[in-house]
Design a protein around this nucleic acid. Structure first.
Lengths: 336, 336
DNA sequence: CTGTTAGCGCATTCAA
DNA sequence: TTGAATGCGCTAACAG
């Protein structure tokens, strides 16, 4: 429907061959300045734009990078996406975004679809990645980089974060402030990173000689509402003085739960999150949290994918990035 | 790189012609069950996937819908995007998402790029749309639907919201509660909807016999931080009892500003927002706000675009959707 | 119901 | 420095 003008028309109008137009348009050398000028002029006049489909068919590349995210509503994935987009802006690649909506079946379906030659490479954010899907990817030889897979050992190039030390550091911060009764809010069970973060919490506690009281640990979904609900119960029933959450969204819900119990943050109760989503800074009081370099992860993943697409060998199969404790105003010493 | 198996190979292996394979694969009628079965079997065995580029070249369609959003960080655009994605999921169209990052130049560049045959149609969220860009779109005859343009009268199919009555209703809610000193936080100047919302506020006040005190009206950027800053000043210097914001993000910032001034919401101070972003419900106290049907706007826009792509005439050039006042817990009667 | 012919628009190869 | 021929993989139109 679009791009009505073809290279042939430009060629005729400019009195040269299609080949010459092609060369000039794609900025190849080998064309006199005079010819180049005329071709460009005619192309502009006619409003010529190369037909992507034809170009793709010829070159075997689409100029598209596929990205499959869990959904398009959660900031976690979107921050990564921004990093990807920023990196891709420089390369001549566009982003084709698909969501799997937390459904393994749909994830497989989307991957299969995109792998059908639509994209030159694939970026997966927090995918489930069943064995069958991995097999498909390998068979197709489709360049692919995985960010934060559920199972950390997937046999594909991947980028993860040092969840263990991040959570230890976050927990340690509360311990240093003098807290001893610290609650923990785990995210959903099926992610390996959830367990790793919890281990970081446990170890920090144990090494400080503190007990991890079983009733102070609860599991909930990765949502604000679930964090609110679960924390309400934890706080009202067991009265800890601080809470560590496996994700900012949970921490944010928990803070509001404390507030609705009439507690003041951080005077009466301290909170530490994990992620450092934009909301963490845009809340009152600002949320102390363990920062994942989400934007950076996106950029690094995109960069790795681009080099894979160019046919280069990857420097490393697995890249683990560090975290950083961001201290804001949701933590303080426990009430006397 | 991907999709190595071609239709010819499948045809040979199955002992039929390429045409037959093509028909079977695209689910066209006219193929005996037996043939169909065999073709499908061979295709599966070989892992055949049609090459999109070739298909696109032949059919003149890419199966891609372009979407240009301001950026990928603000929930406003993302809610619309979700609506679009939901609608497109049913059609055989994929979404190619681009961001313009609030830059008119980049917006034009992106549109020009996508219009080069990459997409079958274009959805624009809150675009600037310079005259030149509109001209380009028309020349290319690229199907296009605009959501919430800055200038409401762009000569393209468009979907907007009834900003005027929405804001009147939101303001009226505060008036009904007994507020008389009501502040107003305007969003950035260059959007027509900003002015229209403000007019709704003014009219509601005037019709209730209330004065719109000049010092109680302030303009700020569409960000939480800017809302926080501006509201802090407004509240501490002029002591209104309620504030209406031209966007939820501003209201959320304003609420935290009130809190940081030691005020309790809604007992000491009431707030009304505009948009009903997910954050409005996920905050404490829940934000009373004027709901824009963002998801619905996305769906309707996508639906309209799809019919345009199918070559059908549009039922209407301009569609204005209604708003709804969502009363949560950020509003109450003014302190005695 | 199935096969043949042709060509979408471009870029690679080679020749001029 | 430029041009002619060729084919990427697929499907519309028609013929058998």
């Amino acid at each position: 429907m679009a791009g009505r003008v073809t290279i042939a028309q430009v060629a005729e109008e400019a009195g040269v061959s299609a080949m010459t137009v092609s060369n000039v348009i794609s900025g190849k050398p080998g064309a006199s300045d005079e010819t180049r000028r005329r071709v460009l002029e005619v192309a502009a006049k006619l409003g010529y734009r190369p037909n992507q489909a034809a170009r793709n068919l010829k070159t075997g590349r689409s100029g598209l990078v596929g990205l499959i995210a869990l959904d398009l509503t959660n900031q976690y994935g979107l921050e990564i996406l921004r990093g990807v987009a920023d990196e891709l802006a420089g390369a001549e690649q566009e982003l084709l975004v698909n969501a799997s909506y937390h459904d393994a079946g749909r994830e497989k379906d989307r991957i299969e679809f995109l792998a059908g030659g639509l994209v030159d490479g694939l970026l997966l954010i927090a995918p489930v990645l069943e064995d069958e899907t991995i097999e498909l990817l390998r068979r197709r030889k489709l360049p692919c980089v995985v960010i934060d897979p559920r199972r950390l050992d997937v046999p594909l190039p991947r980028i993860t974060v040092d969840n263990y030390h991040g959570m230890r550091q976050g927990t340690q911060h509360l311990i240093d402030l003098g807290h001893t009764r610290i609650a923990y809010l785990r995210g959903g069970e099926d992610l390996e990173s959830t367990s790793i973060r919890f281990r970081g919490f446990q170890d920090a506690m144990r090494l400080a000689g503190l007990e991890v009281a079983e009733e102070l640990v609860a599991t909930c979904d990765f949502t604000y509402a679930s964090g609110f609900r679960t924390a309400s119960r934890l706080i009202s029933e067991h009265r800890p003085t601080a809470l560590v959450a496996g994700a900012d969204l949970l921490a944010l819900g928990a803070i509001d739960a404390a507030r609705s119990c009439g507690l003041t943050v951080p005077n009466d109760f301290s909170f530490v999150g994990f992620d450092d989503l934009p909301q963490a800074a845009q809340s009152f009081p600002g949320l102390t949290t363990v920062r994942q370099p989400l934007h950076d992860m996106g950029q690094k993943a995109a960069l790795a994918l681009l080099s894979l697409i160019e046919g280069q060998k990857l420097l490393m199969e697995h890249m683990e990035l560090g975290t950083e404790l961001i201290i804001r105003n949701s933590t303080a010493a426990p009430p006397a």
